[in-house]
Amino acid sequence: MSVVPAQQSGGAGGTSGLYDVLELVLDRGLVIDAFVRVSLVGIEILKIDVRVVVASVDTYLRFAEACNRLDLEAGPHRSAGLPDLVGEVTESGARGKSKGALSGAAQSISDAFQQARGQGESSGTRRSSSRSKKEESE
């Protein structure tokens, strides 16, 4: 999990956090009629690592694949682990153990997702082109 620093100074240069702020510099702030504003055609900023919008066929397939891989990897653990759980351990122990299985599943899905994401990034050209189209229309 990536940890975002709690505080990123607006004055420090070069942090990704600062790029999160650029849209405010462009879209907010005081506008005075007597002042000309430069044309904003051709904006080339905000090449932020933008998450894929959750509404496309690509995303559906990616999610499905991630979930499918989770089951494949978690499957063996489940069939082998379950009888032990029922037979040997106390209730509190079982809770501990099932929690372990759960986080194991979380790990598997995380791995699957990293892979899926890696594949997604290799097709990043398409994503950024759709993004720049959006910027032009703004």
Partner: peptide, 21 residues
């Protein structure tokens, strides 16, 4: 952004939108 950050260190400042000329 950095100019505003510096100018606003001691007292408040009304930030202009980028590109006010």
């Amino acid at each position: 952004q950095q100019v505003l950050s510096e100018a606003g260190r001691k007292s408040s400042v009304l930030p202009m939108r980028f590109g006010s000329v």
